[in-house]
Design a protein around this nucleic acid. Structure first.
Lengths: 170, 170
DNA sequence: AGTTTATGTCAGCCTTGTTGACTTTCCAAG
DNA sequence: CTTGGAAAGTCAACAAGGCTGACATAAACT
């Protein structure tokens, strides 16, 4: 496997070795394998309720900012309204999510988790946090800071702003 | 949004603040948003060839260790053979991947990228590396080390061993 | 000779994404 | 007060890419 061409250049004798194509490739594979682990535990739980990852994402972000409109959620999740609607309809029918007509603008629907919605959310997020907590603990606070820093750079700028908005909200 | 119950405990007055549920939630959302960015550029390219992410993954890992058997690839990708086969068949028909009968064990098929396979791989990986390189550069080497460390902890152990095996191979 | 292994393939199902077309509701500007 | 357009919901159709189950073949192993 040759192909050492691209971003190599020993620009100056110093420590830019972390920018070699090989290092980047490792980062890419790490993202791939880690994301699988990241979703594995919630996926197992969701299966028992015959829900999918899409339901988890909706539940997460409704819990995250209750009262959000559908349009807002659409923006965050980056899917079409038809796609979200299918998921949302199931969650509403099953009594996990409540959709309230807006007071100022009555076209808008504001989304909230019901009691049982909160329960499922807790089950899912506790499973996911469990793994994250173990990873964080093993890696230590400096590693975690780096982790978050790199992830933030990988995001699309719009998503970065979503992410940052969330931060402030908390 | 209360729910501060779970992993909190100010165990000792010191700096375990990075293990709070809130910090974990931020890490979780960072993973979600970052993964979207991570796949965005290759996805755009793949669309032009009417391929999907599954094709990208296959191409990546064939490039990564040429001559690998189908079974091996199955293990790494964590999908069923039927699922992989569909993707592999397309890539072989389109002349991007070559499948050679094993010499010792003639039941095995060993997979290689053809010339055009290499070309697409290069286009895809350069796009993906571009974003990663920018992220790495902005975050700096210490952050990158932490990033990789945390990701490795998030993986399932089997995947971690896959990942480490790859490291040594390079 | 019989069993196991590696691979491929057919058929069918599910989730979750997409587009496009259309309706209903309802705010707000003319 | 009417009308334009935004927000939301719905229907239909489709595609990618997961899955299971059943079965076929060739080769290797015992």
């Amino acid at each position: 496997m040759p192909d050492r061409g691209a971003g190599q250049k020993p620009t100056s004798g110093e420590g830019l070795l972390f920018l070699t194509d090989d290092q980047l490739r490792r980062g890419i594979e790490a993202m791939f394998f880690a994301y699988r682990g990241f979703t594995a535990d919630p996926d197992r739980i969701l299966q028992q309720y015959s829900y999918g990852r899409a339901h988890h994402r909706a539940i997460h972000f409704i819990k995250r900012s209750p009262g959000n409109t559908v349009n807002n959620l659409l923006d965050i999740l980056g899917v079409t309204k038809q796609s979200l609607n299918r998921v949302l309809r199931a969650l509403i029918e099953d009594g996990l999510v409540e959709s309230r007509v807006g007071k100022q603008d009555r076209r808008e629907r504001h989304l909230y988790l019901t009691e049982s919605g909160q329960e499922l959310e807790k089950e899912l997020s506790e499973a996911q946090r469990g793994r994250m907590r173990a990873a964080y603990r093993d890696a230590g606070p400096e590693a975690v800071a780096g982790f978050r820093q790199v992830l933030e750079q990988i995001m699309d700028p719009e998503m970065r702003s979503h992410f940052k908005t969330f931060k402030e909200n908390s």
